[in-house]
Amino acid sequence: MKYWREPLDRGRCEVPKGKVTIIDKRCKGCRFCVEFCPRKVLEVSKGFNEKGYHPPEIARPDDCIACGFCELVCPDFAIFVDQQASCPPPAAKAPKTQEVGAH
């Protein structure tokens, strides 16, 4: 994800992780979840559901941050997100941000 500027507490924040579940048979193919996902986790699938719509598919499951906007914006109760264990803060992997903070 591109940042307009680096958030000051980025090194200390844990990023939540989500697991998206799609109830295919309820989907009416409006694409709200696909277009308004802030991390672009979903894509429109090539396959059809039983009503003849293209339901979304999870293209990048690791990118989900469990914001839950897809669940809120779905008009058909066809998608929901479970929050999983959070990822460790990026600082643990890249101590560079801490060095920058120390200056």
Partner: peptide, 14 residues
């Protein structure tokens, strides 16, 4: 009662 009768792209479900 779900699926509801509202059209694809309608905001009422939201």
């Amino acid at each position: 009662r779900i699926p509801h009768i509202w059209c694809t792209g309608c905001g009422l479900g939201v």
